[in-house]
Design a protein around this nucleic acid. Sequence first.
RNA 1: GGGCGCGUAGCUCAGGGGUAGAGCAUCUGCCUUUUAAGCAGAGGGUCGGUGGUUCGAGCCCACCCGCGCUCACCA
Length: 502
Amino acid sequence: MDNNVQQDVNVLIKRRFEELTELKSKGFEPFAYSYDIDSNSEDIIKNFKEDEKRVVKIAGRIMALRRMGKASFAHIQDHEGRIQIYLRKDDIGDSYDAFRLLDIGDIIGVEGFVFKTKTGEISVHVTSMKLLSKTLRPLPIAKETVDEAGNKIIHDQFADKELRYRQRYVDLVVNPEVRDVFIKRSKIVSAMRNFLDSEGYLEVETPILQPLYGGAAARPFTTYHNTLDTTFYLRIADELYLKRLIVGGFNGVYEISKDFRNEGMDKTHNPEFTMMELYVPYKDYEWMMTFVEKMIHNICKNVFNKLEFEYDGKNITFGSSWKRVSMIDELKEKIGIDVLSADVKQLKESAMKLGIDIKGLETKGKLIDEIFSVAVQPELIQPTFVIDYPVELSPLAKKHRTRNGVVERFEGYVAGREICNAFSELNDPIDQRERFEAQGKMREEGDQEAHQIDEDFLRALEYGMPPTAGLGIGIDRLVMLLTNQTSIRDVIFFPQMKPEVK
RNA sequence: GGGCGCGUAGCUCAGGGGUAGAGCAUCUGCCUUUUAAGCAGAGGGUCGGUGGUUCGAGCCCACCCGCGCUCACCA
């Protein structure tokens, strides 16, 4: 038993090893192979009938323990919730001696009949018990009480955020609301996938290791392939490969997968994050706006069965059509200038008036983007599409069919946050080459996030890509919005952390 | 990267130069319908680390490490 676990023994762990040894010596297998159940905590409570004495077999983790000599009460927790069990030495004999050696955290299976205690709690009167897994570390267990108003009060809740993120398995055991968020996340992704499938689009997979990165403005992670003796980048977006597939003739493709961006981390940024990108041929961004409305509506209905949400104290309604505003018009109204005809100097003045630090904002596009995010974005609480972005911010989007200086692009905003980005995809290879070249110039001027020229992508466009509508949705942020979480770390099981130091 | 804050028992936290504390958890004894079970007793700490000031440092100072919040960049 001298392994790693015992190196950091403290008294509590040592005690558990002693119990383990004692259990083994008494013939109890502390780590069982299987246990067949026929019910669960929720089912038992929901379907309780007085005087029925229904016999059930359940399994779960001991979360509370009240021993009273030759009888004990405990709560066990399974996937559905918690239920109280009642054990007496008279009923289970030798197993009761094993039970004396159990701790909070141990996983057991029990068989018994359902009854209601004197104080009215539906419980299982155990007739046989089997230890399924002995815990060697103490759980940071909280206790719950209910005050006179009926509110649940949790005492000594496991609250250290660092520990909760690093040891998510413990967080999930002791903080049940955490599990609910992740179940919702899973259902949101399923609902989205089902919707996209039902619309006839094909889920595909494209490379994560890319010789060139593109499709977004971001700094990449680099890695290295030994046999090819080549540096690769972890993708920052799926876009350029998915559009190659549209060239190839698919009738709509989508990918739900991780992207990686080598940038700062905060409440809304994790270095790896999940993105859904969709490309549909023969459609444009107008069509895509309607599609997004339909898809989000569908997810809300299917996962939550509601359209009204509260986010960070704000009430949000996902109606069937979202407000649409022009970025340029909105800015004209807010700051009184036409950002398209304004020069860099005027834009800098406007930015400074708004209290923006203009350091590093040298181009019109970046200035406009920043002014927008300060002057307009926070007010976009109800679902809103902001349309028509400056060309230089959008090197992969088609120029607007009637309006000069802007592209056919929209971003969806909810609760002041961006949740999606879409455009009529640029399918003119000559225009695309010019845009890449303009990006190359920005790169030479020191913009590390500007696109590189992707010759293979240009070659693909030269073979002809149908007019196409493209969409990207940050899944983590969508989940945050729908589950009322203000930190991305609370919707990612294992958020990025500095490596643990011993 | 900048600013602010935090780090004391397994968990949640008090203590701010003079013997290291509480509740829960743990251990021993009693207890066969309890539920933050109860009663009686006990154990448990390199007070994040390293240096310094001091007769004496969880406490004051410096540096370091880790975390949280926030600002900047990005989705």
